[in-house]
Every structure is written in structure tokens, then in C-alpha cells.
Nucleic acid binder design. Structure first.
Lengths: 228, 228
DNA sequence: CCTCAAATGTGAGCACTGCTCTTGCTTTGT
DNA sequence: ACAAAGCAAGAGCAGTGCTCACATTTGAGG
């Protein structure tokens, strides 16, 4: 049986990723050094290339893991609520998003931060990247299904309805124009707020960013998306 | 007179920064190479250190310039509108923000993207960083001064009013709780939307992101901030 | 005008990086 | 038992940021 080697391989692979995460957290993704990982593991630097084709490949694998991690987190937060408690689900999803981001700031940066020019996200990243998005989409669909209507209207801006029609097709979900606009606005506000907080653009304004974030999500849910 | 030397110094300094910007745009800030700049300029790599203390210092200077650039852009967009045309100012500011971001994606990434852990933004960056923020704050103050009221209410979440009181003090501006929440939500939604678009998180959804962005700002201005 | 110190540029060198390639050794499946 | 596949090592290449001793240019004051 091919057990022993496979097991050892899995172990060193995860240890490499673990040490890489530590380095990224302490010195940033830009300063991730394969040689230092090898040193810490007592390996020759060339040995790492048995496990990852390149530094970029290692980073890509970490990004995929992060996508899965945040996807799991958000899915679980959503699943804990009763299906009909729409406002509660929105609250839970938003909170879990921020909590995860604060607990894993470097992973958040990896996913939602500045992309490296020319770095084409491999196909493997697409599916995991959609998991947390799908949670929101399902929630919006349920909100609409429950008869809740967004408390906003879509401005009569040129080309919007056509664009939202396309979005419906691309996302494969039947949301009204109002729901698409309100949903995207809420989604963008959420990530905008988290990014501001995490990337240090509001630390001179707030001392307790969580209080503001709670108020923000509450407001977005009840007064924009129209959850009751 | 010390003119000749000063002029030459300014010239090479700006050329270094120019080439640095090109490199960042094409290969990312992480791959900025002083030696390559020196090569392109026909200089010894060590000569660059007469102009910038380190690679980090060069990056910092570029960030400051970018802050000033975006500050200028936003200020000018705002100034072009008549003072009483609040909705027009909001439209202009939002549009200019997105336009600038799309025209200078790497600069946007430098400012609003993942920060390098341990990299403490030097004090010189603070003032330029506040310019575009102040445009929004003044606009919000004018909106409130004109008697417009946000169409949202602040949820009774624990600690929010205390937090907004602190924010008022830190920002030195007398906005109501409603205006603070609505303003920050709109601001976050704007940057969230721009970041999503620029960092490639919506390219599978939209083909004409500007149409959506226009609708978004319109909606935020009239239906959340309460501009008429 | 001429000197002299400050400003500028040079090239070698250190310590680091990602990555490749050859060479051996160990585990695996037949 | 043996060939094949997997794994690790170490030397080496080309690149990086940065320092330092040294040469050159240059501009301003006596």
C-alpha cells in the first residue's frame, strides 16, 4: 500500500503551508521566502520543489484554502439560523465575515487585497471563490421569496436594466432589479467597511469599530434590503 | 545660485519615480526593482540611494503622491459644481473617484490594497491621505446644513451612539448620528464597489460596471443620504 | 578667479532570494 | 528481488536590496 509515503507527503505539505502562513502573517505575502521555510524545517531549499512547483503555486494553494475557509465560515454561520429568520441570517453572515477577516487578516488581504498584475487566477480558485458569494445570493433569493421588497428604487440610469438583466443571466438567479442593486450595495458596503478597518483607514476615527459595523449591517438589512 | 544642481536632482528624482510607477503597473509593487530602474537609466544601482534612502522610502513617496493625486482629482470634481447642487457634487465626487481608480489601478492598489504588515505609514502620509476624505466630510456637512436628512435611522445597537460621539470629536465635525452612519455606509459602498471591480471580483457578473456604479451612487445619494 | 567642501556617480562585495540540475538514496509495486 | 518512482541534497545561476570606499563633478564663498 502506498500509505506511508502519502501520509508523510501530506504532513510535510501541510507543514510547509503552515509555516508559509506564519511568514505571511508576520512579514507579508511579498516577503514569503521558500528558503526560510526550508531552513525552519531542516530541509534543503530545493526539496520544497517536490511539493510545490513554485512560490506562486504555494501562494495559489493558500488562496484556495482561504477561499474554502471563508466559505465554510459563512456557510456555517448561515446554516445555524432558522431558514425563515432572514434578518438573523443576514446578521450572522455579516458578523461572521468581519470576524473571520479580523481573525485572518493576511488571508483576507490575500483574497480581497491588491492582486498581482499579470497573475491570472487559476481555474481551481473559481469554485471555492463562489462559496461565500452563493450564501448571499441564496439569502437574497429567500428574502425575495418571502415577499420582502428592498426599500430603495432603481434610478433610471442609462443601461442599468440591461446590465442587471445580464447579471441575472450570469448569476443564474431571478432577482428583481431592486434586489440586485440593494444586494450589491449592501455587499459592497460590508466589504468596504471591513477593508477600511483592516487596512487601517479608519483607525483614527473609531475606537470600537464593531459597534459601528453592527449598526451598519442592521441598517442595511432592515432599511435597505427590506428584511423584517 | 544652486539652481542647476537642484534642477538636475529634481529631474532624476522624478524620472526614478516615473520608471518605478511603470514597473509597478506592469509587474506589481512587490516586484519593483531598484536595480532595474538603475539599468534603464544607465546608472549604477548604488547611485539611486543618493535619491531615495531605500526601496520602502521610494514606495512611500509614491503613495504620498498618489494620495495627493486622488485628493486633487476629487477636490477639483467637487469644486466644479455649484455649492448648492448637493446631488451633483456627490455624483461628481463618486464618478471622479471611480474614474481615477480605473485610470490608475496600481496607485489605487497602493493606497487601498493590502498593506505590508509592519509597514507603518509615516506621518507625512497622513495629511495627503485626508484630502479626499475631507471633501466627503464637507459635502456631508453641507447636506446637513441644507436641511436634508438621511432616509435611514440608526439602529439601537449597543455602544453606537457613544462611538459616533467619539467619531464626531475625532473628525471635528458636527454630523448627526444618522448622517455619520449613512455617510460611512455610502462611502464604504463606493470603495467596496470600486475595489470589487478593480480587483476582479465581479468581472463574471457585469459587462458594463459603470452603468451599475452610476445607479449605485445615484441611489446612495438620493435614497440614503437624502439629497434632493 | 580659485579653492574646497559638498553633492554625485562608481564598482566591488555581502547576504539574501527563486529556481534548476545532477547525484545519490529510499520506498513502492510488481 | 528488482526496476521504477519518489524524495532529499548540494552546487550553481541569475537576480535582489543595500553598504562602503573611492573617484569625479560642481557650485559657492574667500
Amino acid at each position: 500500500m502506498t500509505g506511508i509515503r502519502a501520509k508523510a507527503r501530506l504532513e510535510t505539505t501541510t507543514e510547509i503551508k503552515h509555516l508559509a502562513r506564519e511568514q505571511i502573517a508576520s512579514k507579508g505575502a511579498a516577503n514569503l521566502s521558500l528558503r526560510e521555510i526550508a531552513r525552519e524545517m531542516g530541509l534543503a531549499s530545493s526539496a520544497l520543489y517536490r511539493y510545490f512547483a513554485s512560490r506562486d503555486q504555494l501562494l495559489t494553494d493558500l488562496i484556495i484554502e482561504s477561499y474554502d475557509d471563508i466559505g465554510n465560515t459563512v456557510e456555517r454561520a448561515d446554516a445555524k439560523c432558522s431558514r425563515e429568520d432572514l434578518a438573523g441570517r443576514w446578521r450572522a453572515v455579516s458578523q461572521s465575515l468581519r470576524t473571520w477577516a479580523i481573525a485572518n487578516p493576511s488571508d483576507y488581504g490575500l483574497i480581497f487585497g491588491t492582486p498581482v498584475p499579470g497573475y491570472e487566477a487559476p481555474a481551481d480558485t473559481i469554485a471555492p471563490a463562489l462559496r461565500y458569494t452563493n450564501v448571499l445570493l441564496r439569502l437574497l433569493a429567500d428574502v425575495q421569496g418571502a415577499g420582502c421588497k428592498p426599500l430603495i428604487t432603481v434610478p433610471t440610469t442609462k443601461g442599468v436594466s440591461k446590465e442587471y438583466k445580464r447579471a441575472r443571466a450570469n448569476l443564474g438567479i431571478n432577482l428583481t432589479d431592486e434586489m440586485i442593486l440593494a444586494g450589491l450595495a449592501a455587499w459592497a458596503a460590508l466589504f468596504g467597511a471591513i477593508s477600511f478597518e483592516l487596512f487601517g483607514h479608519v483607525d483614527t476615527v473609531f475606537t470600537d469599530p464593531e459597534a459601528h459595523f453592527r449598526a451598519l449591517t442592521e441598517m442595511l438589512g432592515t432599511q435597505m434590503l427590506g428584511m423584517k
